[in-house]
Design a protein around this nucleic acid. Structure first.
Lengths: 253, 253
DNA sequence: CGTAGAATTGACCGCGGTCAAGTCGCGTGG
DNA sequence: CCACGCGACTTGACCGCGGTCAATTCTACG
């Protein structure tokens, strides 16, 4: 039970990082980062984990393929792209990660990362080491389920993207992406209509499975229809409901 | 530590299911089902879990959307398809599961299944309940990592499919699928060249993100090239290396 | 200024979806 | 026994979406 001992200390008491105590309890992102039904006591126990903070500058990698897996990460500030490097050296983006979202869950499968995570702007992450994950697993019943939950969410997230790429036209895909970003911004208190895209068109087309020119064409198409106002990487959603209608067209056959 | 007590009993000793003792140790599928680096003692501890067996007949569901999540499953016999039901009532297949492979990991995200799993032929599964998963998490260090590992593998599996649908042509996708099945059959001691597809063309095209007619066309195309001999759902791979070359064409631009 | 990268726009065309007809195997019933 | 229907699969003709190639604009930066 020695691993549990650390849970019983008063948060922010006799540790060197006393000034950073109660990291999770005080974090404004905890509603996004953690499964919703976590009890307050459980969150307080998370504070006892001495979670490392790490800054990552724009265009720098948080991890790369074949890096040793040491931790999973939660974004505190900034935006990341994550994905996999194919054998032909081309990167395929499989996700964008806003503050409060997790990174590196695919690393849990083995000892080496098979993908990459890159900061799209100056960013900061919380790193939860493997040792700390083990502590979580040995913790109270409320905490034991945290890791499987988070990984389950990751699986679901991938399935959503899969469904997007399979059934939908390029226009529907871009609309779905914008609505998705809008909802995620809203979830963290940002405007659901004013979007500043941190990623390049190249990243976007890699993620959405289409060509750079097509992304461009679809932006202008949606703009022509009065759903968006696009100015480079700044996108203003004029008609959010109309955009949602684009995603699920009424197909009859 | 009470949850650990059951690990210390002798496998197959004083339990009602004595005749089924040492389920995992004696299972010929354990090399596929479990992470490879699991120690023999750890596998023996798994035997102490009273794992339920369950038969599922052809075309019957193992679980469906909105079913309560009670367990994850390992295929013992038969083949399953799994996927998600879209709001327009169409099913999208996201995976096929051969003996030794796991099912229902997406359910760990919440209390209700969001997808379905259906038997393609008469099948049998091992069901590992949530309570047993919790016991695993509290178990020895070797076992604590099992669940994150398996979920990590699931995430990776989805990423592979994602990459397949994104970058590849329909021809490359079908070739990749056949090579994948070939490798998985080989891993469980079956012939890597003689394949009997348990799934319909409709399931296949749903999985590969193309239309039924296109699947048919690609089968005949690969056959015309001398890579396959196709007879309904029986596929004989004539030139496995040639098939692998189809997957990764040398693109220069 | 000159150069490079990011983004947009246009012209062209091929892959793969759509529609339609045809084949094969199989169970059902007259 | 064949007729019939049904579902699974195949094959062919057509065409539209989106990829390819190329030119242009615009901003950033040295």
């Amino acid at each position: 039970m020695s691993t549990l001992a650390m849970f019983h200390q008063v948060p922010g008491s006799h540790t060197a990082e006393a000034t950073e105590g109660a990291l999770c309890t005080n974090c404004h992102l905890k509603g996004i980062c953690l499964p919703v039904d976590l009890k307050r006591q459980d969150v307080q126990r998370l504070d006892a984990l001495k979670i490392d903070r790490r800054r990552v500058k724009e265009r720098q990698h948080l991890y790369q393929p074949s890096d040793e897996v040491r931790a999973i990460f939660a974004v505190r500030r900034g935006t990341f792209k994550s994905g996999r490097r194919r054998q032909d050296e081309t990167d395929h983006v499989t996700g964008f990660h806003l503050p409060g979202e997790l990174l590196g869950l695919d690393g849990l499968a083995g000892h080496e990362h098979i993908g990459f995570a890159t900061a799209l702007d100056d960013a900061e992450v919380c790193a939860i080491s493997h040792a700390q994950l083990t502590d979580l697993a040995s913790g109270t019943p409320g905490l034991q389920r945290v890791i499987p939950r988070l990984l389950g969410r990751e699986v679901v997230r991938q399935q959503e993207l899969l469904a997007l790429l399979r059934g939908k036209s390029v226009e529907e895909r871009l609309a779905a992406f914008l609505v998705d970003i809008s909802l995620r911004q809203q979830a963290r208190g940002c405007s659901p209509t004013e979007i500043h895209l941190q990623m390049s068109r190249a990243d976007l087309c890699s993620y959405l499975g289409m060509k750079l020119e097509t992304v461009s064409r679809m932006f202008t198409l949606l703009q022509r229809r009065g759903l968006l106002v696009v100015d480079k990487r700044h996108v203003q959603i004029v008609d959010l409901e109309g955009l949602k209608l684009v995603i699920d067209p009424v197909r009859m056959h």
